[in-house]
Amino acid sequence: MLVLEDVYTHYGKIEALHGVSVEVRAGEIVALIGANGAGKTTLLMTVCGNPQASSGRILLEGRDITRRPTAEIMRSGISIVPEGRRVFPGLTVEENLYMGGFFNERADNERGIGRVYELFPRLKERGHQRAGTMSGGEQQMLAIGRALMSKPRLMILDEPSLGLAPLVIRQIFEIIAQLRDDGITVFLVEQNAHQALHLADRGYVLETGRVRLQDTGLNLLANPDVQNAYLGG
């Protein structure tokens, strides 16, 4: 589905990723964990082409997207739930969802919004409310719903549990599991390593711009190094 081959990324002269190789296979949930500043978000941004990788290759469903512009990448079957949710605060829930399906036919969007409302009944209640006035959890649901609108085959989630109450986090993770059951491949970036690895089929541990470990989610959970570094011993 998504393959990164020996990717290097630079911010100006600073090298942020030092030859990262990651593979996300179709139908999987793959978790990427790591401490602050390990390069998790940089890796995601590189996939989106902003900044572009300075060397290495990124393949999406076999097609090389390394040098494609961001707007084109984001229209080719990927969608991203950005860090901090980033819903459009002044638009209503429904308009936010509509923006997610910006390049779709109108009829597709009506069906799409119906599907999102089934997944998140809470959003239906709030359909005409301005997104900025909702709680963090609701906004996160909206961000996921918006990302679903473009009918992605691969969904990337950047820190979906950030700043949410434990109960809400559990809900969000249940939804992510459901996305996989619906046939969407999920690439999950999380600091909340415990829950992420529980859910994920496989996981990668990123440390200062390099992949330190990769294994199945459960094996990583059991790994003493991971337990020490990311799971609080």
Partner: peptide
Amino acid sequence: RSWEALREDEIAARSLGL
């Protein structure tokens, strides 16, 4: 609508392929 989306949140607008 794309103007408004860009005004509201540039990063989000770009993440949607605008």
